[in-house]
Nucleic acid binder design. Structure first.
Lengths: 145, 145
DNA sequence: ACATATTTAATTGCGCACAAGTTAATATCC
DNA sequence: GGATATTAACTTGTGCGCAATTAAATATGT
């Protein structure tokens, strides 16, 4: 049977292509994020909080598609770096309310240049990037069903 | 400034879309791969070895874009499961030569149904999947440059 | 009101990814 | 041949992802 038709060949795996490209992308972010002392998942958390401070771990997890098993230790590390405060909701002691410190807010300025630098590294025109993003979002939606 | 134009908004991140979709995909593989007692990266290694046994860790790493820091412990786990033999090249004692056991080869049959089952979960027509794969491969190539 | 169920986060344990450094074998240069 | 450089794999340490479990606070039903 030819390679072209074998569903179990590496060349025919959509997921492997996405997996490899995502790993490479996160690797490419590293030298930029190192300057902010952030990992890529930490950068995602900061992006959410720059837009909307005071949300819960649950809300953050829904936005990022991550659970508390991932987020709790990550948020503790951001707290250790004095970027985030892990407060508690006074009306419901179960929920953590996440706030940025002044240092956390200030980091937004330093991050401003990152998207443009990354666009250069990934290459492709705006239309291709829009398509890639859309196809990934469709796949995610189908998998969440 | 509107969300649409803010490069630091989550909705405008190609990488986040890829990252979330890849995580979801690997999560969707899990119930299928559990039946073979494989993780997704282990499944990738097995796919390579089903095609071409007797390769080195270095060659395997080039195909999967992974280094020995990832592969060495993973291969040891596959050896513990008696799916892989970690031999040595007689002419160059530095290189590990990877072989499948009979059980490792036999697993190929059990894996045959997985690609079709996954295609259903991801959804999208053949053309969209081809495009998604191609766009990821382009991005990976640019990032490797 | 009290028992039961649900919800939110935290915890535990495992397996990646990967940077950085180590070890051992082979290749290269003089 | 012997010193030096290179190569292949291994090791160590950190930070995810995530399944599964636990703990504590709140909600619900009667």
């Amino acid at each position: 049977m030819s390679q072209k038709m074998d569903p179990l060949a590496l060349e025919n795996q959509v997921c492997f292509a996405m997996y490899s490209a995502t790993n490479a992308l996160i690797r490419a972010y590293r030298p930029l994020l190192d300057q902010l002392s952030l990992t890529y998942p930490q950068y995602l958390v900061m992006m959410v909080l720059w837009k909307e401070s005071g949300i819960s771990v649950k809300t953050l997890g829904e936005k990022l598609h991550l659970d508390s098993g991932t987020l709790t230790p990550l948020l503790k590390r951001l707290e250790t770096k004095a970027l985030v405060i892990r407060d508690r909701n006074k009306d419901d002691e179960r929920v953590r309310v996440l706030h940025l410190t002044e240092a956390g807010k200030a980091l937004h300025q330093q991050a401003k240049g990152i998207p443009e630098l990354m666009r250069c590294k990934v290459g492709g025109d705006a239309e291709q990037l829009r398509q890639l993003k859309q196809l990934c979002e469709n796949a995610l939606m189908n998998l969440k069903d």
